[in-house]
Design a protein around this nucleic acid. Structure first.
Lengths: 171, 171
DNA sequence: GATTCGATCGGAGGGATAGTTA
DNA sequence: TCTAACTATCCCTCCGATCGAA
């Protein structure tokens, strides 16, 4: 099973096409997309191969652009801003993000490519997918810790203390 | 944003239909399912309009612009979409809105320029301000009634049944 | 009855704070 | 033991389906 993010319009559209109680999103989509109804066990899970990306200098400019959107300011909740920032950080430097993503607390791990892993290390972590990335983050934290997580992550990614502080302020 | 689970076959099918780098699952699905793209609230409907309206011609084009879909689709809650639509309706034709705003239920009034008025007619109406307008709406309703309110309002404003239905669908 | 309308109340999400561990 | 760091319980707010009233 994979998880994909869709906006509300798409979500409602799919949900409204349910024909049988309990039907899964896959079943509905298979019908809508006119794909064979087969259970398709053969569909090999093409392991996500991450071709090692080239090392690029920390492009703070890109990050600023990504962050500098009105969207961030519009978000009401710390969680929403947190997710937006993480998404921007991932997209700015996927490779650096990957290397930095192993930061952890005493019992919990903070990032994983699989929600299960987060669920297993900690009692109630409330994992959420980081938009436009293969990662999931822990979400059951106070705002201070969300800042700390960003701070540790950015530091490990190689961002300067100044820009890191600035970004943390936005959470 | 919502998260849905799909099996690998569906996942890869969708991923393989990517046309532009960085395209989101929503964008791809919107294309595959032949749903209106962002920013086009029923382009067809609009261009097909016969201008048979008497009175002041209802400028549906303006409404379409105001109802910029990208934002609308992003909103998670029916309330948020409801408010966005009402705001767009007000801004499109403040005068018509004002004339139409006296629609009411059995005990409640639905719109007022003053939250007090809404509070006084009904027990728990949860008034909220309509952005960019002097009006307030009641909010403690199920989604069906939110659609009904939009429908009655747009009808009273003189919008065609077609575009009214289309807008109601977006709630 | 059938239908429309109201508002109670269950449920989810967010995150401060109380509690736990090193 | 005391404190700092971390966890996750639990309260609060917001939504809106469901069920009761008209």
């Amino acid at each position: 099973m994979k998880t994909i993010e869709v906006d509300d319009q798409i979500y409602h559209y799919i949900a409204s096409r349910t024909l049988h109680i309990g039907e899964s999103a896959s079943d509905i989509l298979r019908r809508l997309l006119a794909l064979p109804q087969d259970n398709a066990l053969g569909a090999v899970t093409v392991s996500d191969q991450h071709t090692t990306e080239q090392e690029t200098p920390v492009s703070e400019g890109d990050l600023v652009t990504l962050l500098n959107n009105a969207q961030l300011a519009k978000e009401e909740s710390a969680i929403a801003r947190f997710m937006l920032i993480l998404s921007a950080l991932y997209r700015a430097r996927p490779d650096a993000f990957r290397r930095a993503a192993d930061i952890k607390g005493r019992k919990r791990i903070y990032f994983a490519e699989d929600p299960q892993a987060l669920l297993e290390n900690g009692k109630t972590t409330k994992p959420k997918p980081v938009p436009e990335s293969p990662y999931w983050v822990i979400t059951n934290t106070n705002t201070g810790r969300k800042r700390l997580i960003i701070e540790q992550l950015m530091q490990a990614m190689g961002y300067s203390a100044e820009i890191t502080a600035e970004v943390c302020n936005k959470v």
